[in-house]
């Protein structure tokens, strides 16, 4: 057996070890890589939010579960930070039962840090089952669908809800999701109620959403961890502290390793003569 053959038959656990090291070392050492030019869809979301007037209402849907947290939580943290810094009012909902706890965490963390007040600057309305029915319902009246907040307060008396009845009073809806819910938001809130929508999604979903971006059915797209890092970059956050940019360093090194593995695999494939044996 030649060296090339041995390389081709490499025990996959060595690859696993390589990937583990490629991910762990940059995170532990806080190794920061330079960011590339932010993608236009990310810039579109950033600019849209930046152009809103203080006091405008932005609704966030936390539609992801813990499994996609590593990609979507940094996005949500960066966007919520931007919203609070711009003095926008933030309403949050969740159509995924596991997303409600994650959304609450994001709002409370950034809210505490920037002095945003629950009920005045933001409110978490929590989870409602029903998917498209909830989306449609809020087109008529948010209060009917969500008479109370996630922790049981009546929303009608909350200062943040002053003048907010339905999507007509919401400047932008941002859906952070790892499943099919962005399509429901686009179909029902976007198409039916003409609500402007942006999405924060996992990288693997990106090809699903690009057609909607091309047809202007969404105003922008934050795409995976890279999108989170781009958003943090646009906000000028510290690359050694911001979770997106920090994670992006690890992802960059891991990608590089995969590319090296693919190239090495191909060299070994041709050098070992296996391509002739097929």
């Amino acid at each position: 057996m030649t060296t090339w053959d041995r390389l081709l038959d490499l025990d996959r656990r060595w690859i696993f070890l390589g990937i583990a090291l490629a991910v762990v070392i940059p995170i532990v050492t806080k190794y920061a890589l330079p960011q590339g030019k932010p993608a236009p869809p990310t810039v579109a979301v950033y600019d849209y939010i930046d152009d809103l007037k203080p006091g405008d209402v932005v609704m966030i849907a936390f539609d992801y579960s813990p499994s996609s947290m590593p990609e979507l939580q940094p996005q949500a943290l960066a966007v919520v930070r931007h919203l609070f810094e711009r003095d926008l009012r933030v309403l949050s909902v969740s159509l995924n039962p596991q997303g409600t706890a994650l959304g609450r965490e994001v709002l409370a963390t950034i809210g505490d840090e920037l002095g945003a007040v629950d009920g005045v600057d933001y409110v978490h309305l929590g989870f409602k089952p029903g998917g498209s029915q909830v989306i449609l319902g809020m087109g008529e009246s948010i209060e009917v669908v969500y008479p109370t907040t996630a922790d049981g307060r009546k929303i009608s008396g909350l200062p943040i809800m002053a003048g907010v009845r339905n999507y007509d009073d919401v400047a932008l809806l941002i859906d952070f999701a790892a499943g099919n819910l962005p399509f429901a938001w686009i179909a029902y809130a976007g198409e039916r109620y003409k609500q402007d929508i942006a999405c924060g999604i996992t990288a693997v979903m990106a090809t699903d959403l690009y057609p909607y971006l091309q047809s202007d059915q969404i105003i922008g797209l934050i795409n995976g961890l890279k999108g989170a890092a781009e958003y943090e970059y646009l906000m000028g956050l510290d690359p050694t502290e911001a979770p997106g940019m920090l994670g992006m360093s690890a992802q960059s090194i891991a990608h590089l390793l995969i590319i090296v593995l693919v190239i090495a695999g191909n060299i070994a494939y041709f050098a070992s003569g296996r391509h002739r044996r097929r």
Binding site: Q35, K37, S252, L256, I258, I259
Partner: peptide
Amino acid sequence: MLGRVPGSLIV
């Protein structure tokens, strides 16, 4: 892949 992680090109 490289476009997704442009920082790695600097490496």
